[in-house]
Design a binder for these strands. Structure first.
Lengths: 354, 354
DNA sequence: CTGTTAGCGCATTCAG
DNA sequence: CTGAATGCGCTAACAG
């Protein structure tokens, strides 16, 4: 079994350089020789050393994926998309888990360290929060970076996320089409961008339907299930004529709390109260009644994220080839910002009461 | 900013070799010089090239994690454990997703290819199924491999999994302690090792309690929720005196089906039927009633898995150093096989009816 | 204890 | 179109 390019070269009766040319798909090789070399490579089951070729060429073929320890469930779908795209490329995926406990500075140091090892061609950062400014700067300096779903309105780096406002809009529209006019919303802390966006989508749908916003029907919520339960209790305590006939929760998690509260109050879902969540957790199919919700395109987010990153890497390579000056990105066009559409998944919790 | 070892060497007024010695914690360096070099490395924020050091030293510091595309949810916890341990080591984690659609041969080829790239120091394979024999062979030949949770009774490679039988045993014991004597079991296809083990745990607990196994109370189940529902319906159709007062399901997923069936039959959980699942899915906290279940130590599995792998890598390195013959493992002691204990998580579905 | 030397396996010049 | 030569950044063997 051939171990190095040299072995193949010897077997084929050519120089190592020629084998290398074939391996890297260089055009200037005699077709017959190329054919012969390829056959031998195949026979010998030869794969060039990833490490050596990275070192010699000067560019690496590793993609580093940066991920916070929280949001793990959400992430597993994203990784799946990322891994699939990478497996079709010449790259390998290196996973770096960024402990949430680190402060902004420590996070930047962590990232700096990864870069300093010089094993990565580009960074895919998921929900970077505090380290986002550093990543933007990195991108501005010419290093390939893609940010996935960070919660900042304007990011000076390529960004891929989900259309939270649009998702909320179709959720509420769905309830409106079912005939509901009193639709409540359980919100999330408004310092988070996606929380605001979901609220905005709710408002817009109501407005377009000519329904005035009823402040009484907007209840502050939070991440845990209990917050949904408490919010629902508030709504259920309203006098019947002011009580909502439908609830749009900012999270599936909150919606589970609503289901519990409804059980306690003897209210039936969807007959007395229609319910729509947001996220499409796996659990939402299993709770009773199954939950109508908005599905985030997590898998696609991962896919599109690496695809974008890979294209940026390629681009910066030709760029580096053409004019050797390490041009800053700022002179170029503004970075890609892609908001993937959400989809409505209708289940029992909002079935039209027949 | 210093870019290479050479830069540091120049700044410190020593040779590159000495800097390299400090970087690799070699003992034979003058303490004062070491101190000075370390300070400069710190100041200059220098990190050696991962690629170059891998190439030069001949041993890589990448751990490859092989994972099937199915079982993804389960995996996310495992990765978390793996990533945490790796982040404390000098290694990096490379993720390889093994498509489930590949047949055994294609899987082996896929793995061979990873090895041929020579970027990995060891393989951590999760639930390898068809490729397990190949991995064992690899281990026998001296390559560091650890298998996580494969479903084969005897594996000729280091193995870390969960104690399924023990978990089932404590689940049933819990029900026995609550006073139940008619405990049903919803099984899984018995060609799977963990399915058999869970069944065995059930049998053993009953036997030790002096209760004869009632074949009528063992119902064949499968993976989807519906299978649990169907199994429960069979049990609920039994005449009252032969009907179970408790059910031990092989999976939380099945238990969700039982909850649905109970609702339809007007049976209350836990008052009429106590219920225990297995796996501790995240959902099990949210279903109503919340589900008593057996928690798999997934995170710990990941941790112990890499720890074991890292130690095997170290060991094989000293081994290779001492006697240059590529000794086969077969002459050594049998590989580690570690079954991690499961824990019982008591929730509402099995509360003692007070 | 330290410096010098020679590669690791490949990609990339530069001649031919 | 092809081969020989050089070096990527680091480690390891060998002298001193």
């Amino acid at each position: 079994m051939a171990r190095t390019i040299g072995d193949i070269a010897r077997l084929a009766g050519v120089s190592k350089a020629t084998v290398s040319r074939v391996l890297n798909n260089k055009p200037d090789v005699d077709p017959a020789t190329r054919e012969r070399i390829l056959r031998i490579i195949e026979e010998e089951n030869f794969v060039p050393s990833f490490t050596a070729s990275n070192l010699a060429s000067g560019h690496n073929r590793f993609i580093s994926m940066l991920m916070p320890t929280s949001l793990w469930n959400f992430l597993s779908d994203v990784i799946k998309g990322v891994a699939e795209v990478i497996s079709l490329s010449a790259y390998q995926l290196v996973l770096h888990v960024l402990p949430d406990t680190l402060d902004a500075e420590a996070q930047c140091k962590y990232i700096e360290n990864i870069l300093a090892m010089k094993l990565t061609a580009g960074l895919l950062a998921f929900f970077p929060k505090d380290s986002a400014p550093y990543l933007e700067q990195l991108y501005q300096q010419g290093f390939p970076v893609v940010i996935l779903d960070d919660q900042r309105p304007l990011v000076a780096a390529p960004w891929i996320g989900a259309d939270n406002k649009g998702g909320a809009y179709i959720a509420v529209q769905h309830l409106l089409r079912l005939g509901h006019r009193h639709i409540a919303h359980i919100s999330l802390p408004q310092h988070l961008l996606f929380a605001r966006e979901r609220y905005q989508g709710y408002c817009q749908a109501l407005e377009e339907a000519g329904i005035a916003l009823d402040p009484e029907l907007v209840v502050a919520g939070d991440f845990p299930m209990q917050s949904g339960q408490h919010a629902a209790e508030k709504l259920f305590h309203l006098p019947p004529e002011r009580r909502p006939t439908a609830i749009f929760a900012s999270l599936d998690m909150q919606a589970y709390g609503v289901i519990h509260a409804a059980q306690q109050y003897g209210l039936r879902i969807p007959d007395d109260i229609a319910l729509v969540g947001f996220d499409d957790n796996e659990t939402s199919l299993i709770v009773h009644p199954s939950l109508t919700t908005i599905r985030q395109p997590r898998y696609e987010m991962g896919q599109r994220g690496v695809q974008l990153l890979l294209s940026i890497i390629e681009e910066s390579r030709v760029h580096a080839h053409n004019n050797s000056s390490p041009k800053l990105r700022s002179v170029q066009q503004p970075p890609v910002r892609l908001q993937l559409p959400m989809t409505l998944v209708v289940r029992d919790s909002s079935q039209p009461s027949q």
